[in-house]
Nucleic acid binder design. Structure first.
Length: 628
DNA sequence: ATTAGGG
DNA sequence: CCCTAAT
């Protein structure tokens, strides 16, 4: 069984305030662990802590009654060291909240009132705002060892509410961490150091006011299972009363305890616990008392009487945790726990948090299981038509696809970039459609009209079909319409599809003969590979032709050179006639391409200015042999 | 941003 | 044409 070092600790962050008021610099450290069914202590998970934080917050705010608190169903036990709470946990988990030694009293109060009231004794509620791993704390207190002991003792001291082993063990534990002077005071309760407390003193109606200090000490022992050296009658009475009544609403004097209830001399009664809303005034008394014995009495009124066997075991399990202020000492600052309380989260804790975050982030990110489909979807989308094409008017920001029967909207921008790059999209939105498109269109049109008049009709036919083929199905429909409508208007046909560019692949623009010729000319002048230069100088008016386009086209021309030139001979008459979309590239151009290619590839890319005019004009007239 | 290549 | 890698 392990008590891990990773117990969650609730750290009072308003420690400054609280302790300044109390004149103490001791911060409050709360540990939160979950108690498993077998008694194992499990470090509180972050969730656990959060739950309690919530809970605690509620308490500190308005001190709601237990009904309001809601979270805690029951205080199973509260000992000096910890409070066991049964929390409204769907799984019925038990939670322990323990305080650091110097502040156990706070927890005591809380337990007594059967609710989590993490208030210091004054009225300033501590704030539990962060988790701290009490590694050091536990280590120094030998928590893990004790846990084992506790377990052992748990089994041997079952039904005994207060038994010697318990007390002895506790004292032993106390001795470990308690200041030396403290130990010396321990034996002060002479005569009653017997192994078994005198429980008879608590039987029946107990009027503490009538007891001597020694008797009170014995009663204290009987109540809390340990000895005390405190000789302050009032303090003892209050403590005992609280212990017996499991309440912190205890008058400083003048009350009779009967059947574990306070029966005031004046007839006041049953201010003990369950459901009773504590009265601030009474709490103030307690506060005062505690102020008198700062950091003392780590013993909370033992709720052993109310503990189940297991619960008792739990309380014992933690008994060593807080041991420093058993008796009044008046010097909290001397407590070694001071440092512990203020220590930073340990590395391990940090790591735990990191892990959590990591997991969270993983969770937030698409899980591996999800990623695969996602990518698949992306791929699918790339190949499949984009629905947003249907309404270019405004749906493009997101795209919808079906995944596992679910319709998922994926922001276009956030998608894995598979289709058009974002910049295309932007350009589409901003300028492409209107200005540039028109400009280009015009330029191209002029170009064609001027330089390529003869082939216009052919081009018109060829311009559209490729577009249809390369675009999505829907786009295809649009294009088809366009083709039909613009059979006689090349410009419209060329510009219209452009609207869709942003969403899908770049609109396919068939290379015109003019462009090819320019390209060839450019290659001849600058050499293959100087695409950017060629583009600048020869394609300045073709904004849609990028250097990559030029490169690709040149490559295609080369291929055409290698395939079509020979084929042409075989085929003889151009059979492509059937397919108007395939326009043969004039052999003259192909030949020239071939020449340039061979020349430059051989010459190491050496640029050789070429005169197109003579050769060109002659060849162009020849029968086409490639494709545009 | 260009280029070269594969797809 | 797209996409990437390599410059």
């Amino acid at each position: 069984m392990e008590v891990d070092d990773s117990n969650g600790a609730l750290v009072n962050k308003s420690e400054e305030n609280d302790f300044e008021k109390k004149g103490s610099s001791d911060p409050v450290v709360y540990q939160l662990v979950r108690v498993e069914g077998d008694g194992t202590l499990v470090p509180a998970t972050e969730d656990d802590v959060l739950e309690f934080e919530h809970f605690l917050q509620d308490e500190k705010v308005d001190r709601p009654s237990i009904e309001d608190a809601g979270h805690v169903e029951e205080v199973l036990s509260n000992s000096n060291d910890c409070i066991l709470l049964k929390k409204s946990d769907s799984e019925g988990n038990l939670y322990r909240i323990s305080s650091s030694p110097c502040n156990f009293k706070n927890m005591h109060i809380i337990a007594q009132e059967n609710r989590l009231q993490l208030l210091d004794d004054s009225l300033s509620p501590p704030r539990v705002v962060r988790v701290q791993q009490p590694d050091k704390f536990l280590t120094e207190q030998g928590d893990s060892n004790i846990t084992q002991q506790d377990n052992a003792s748990t089994e041997t001291t079952k039904s005994t509410v207060l038994n010697d082993s318990c007390g002895a063990e506790k004292d032993k534990a106390d001795a470990c961490s308690r200041p030396v002077d403290d130990t010396s005071t321990e034996p002060s309760v002479s005569g009653v150091t017997g192994s078994v407390p005198d429980f008879s003193i608590l039987r029946g109606e107990v009027c503490l006011d009538d007891l001597t200090i020694r008797e009170l000490q014995e009663a204290f022992r009987a109540t809390f299972g340990r000895q005390t050296s405190v000789k302050d009658k009032i303090w003892l009475k209050r403590r005992i009363t609280m212990g017996l009544t499991n309440s912190c609403d205890v008058p400083s004097s003048g009350c009779v305890v009967k059947d574990y209830r306070i029966v005031g001399k004046d007839g006041r009664q049953d201010i003990s616990n369950i459901g009773e809303i504590p009265k601030i005034g009474l709490q103030s008394n307690l506060v005062r008392d505690q102020g008198i014995y700062p950091g003392n009495e780590r013993d909370s009124p033992s709720s052993s009487y109310y503990q189940s066997e297991d619960q008792q075991g739990f309380s014992k399990r933690f008994k060593r945790v807080p041991i420093h202020n058993d008796e009044p000492q008046g010097n909290l600052l001397a407590e070694p726990c001071t440092n512990k309380r203020t220590r930073k989260p340990t590395k391990r804790y940090i790591e735990e948090l990191s892990d959590n975050e990591t997991h969270d982030s993983i969770g937030k990110l698409s899980s591996p299981a999800k990623r695969t489909p996602h990518d698949e979807v992306s791929l699918k989308l790339r190949a499949a038509p984009f629905h947003e094409l249907e309404s270019l008017g405004g749906i493009y920001p997101t795209r919808k696809y079906t995944l596992g029967g679910l319709n998922v909207h994926v922001p276009y921008a956030s998608r894995m970039r598979r289709g058009r790059p974002r910049k295309d999209f932007i350009s589409f939105v901003d300028t492409e459609p209107s200005v540039q498109c028109n400009g280009v269109k015009t330029a191209a049109g002029m170009m064609l009209a001027k330089e390529c008049e003869e082939g216009n009709h052919v081009r018109k036919a060829s311009e559209v079909p490729p577009t249809v083929n390369s675009e999505t199905g829907h786009l295809e429909a649009i294009d088809t319409k366009v083709v039909q409508n613009l059979e006689t208007n090349f410009y419209k046909a060329a510009s219209k599809p452009k609207i869709k560019r942003g969403l899908t692949r770049k609109h396919h623009r068939a290379w015109t003969l003019c462009e090819v010729m320019k390209l060839v000319d450019g290659v001849a002048r600058f050499g293959a590979g100087k695409w950017s230069e060629i583009r600048k100088l020869s394609f300045s008016s073709y904004s849609y032709r990028t250097s990559v386009d030029l490169k690709d086209k040149w490559r295609n021309l080369i291929r055409a050179t290698q395939t079509q030139l020979p084929a042409q001979k075989d085929v003889g008459v151009c059979p492509r006639k059937i397919n108007p979309s395939i326009i043969p590239i004039p052999t003259s151009i192909l030949l020239r391409v071939k020449e340039l290619n061979e020349l430059q590839s051989q010459g190491g890319g050496f640029t050789r200015p070429v005169k197109l005019s003579g050769q060109n004009s002659k060849v162009v007239k020849g029968i086409g042999s490639g494709f545009l």
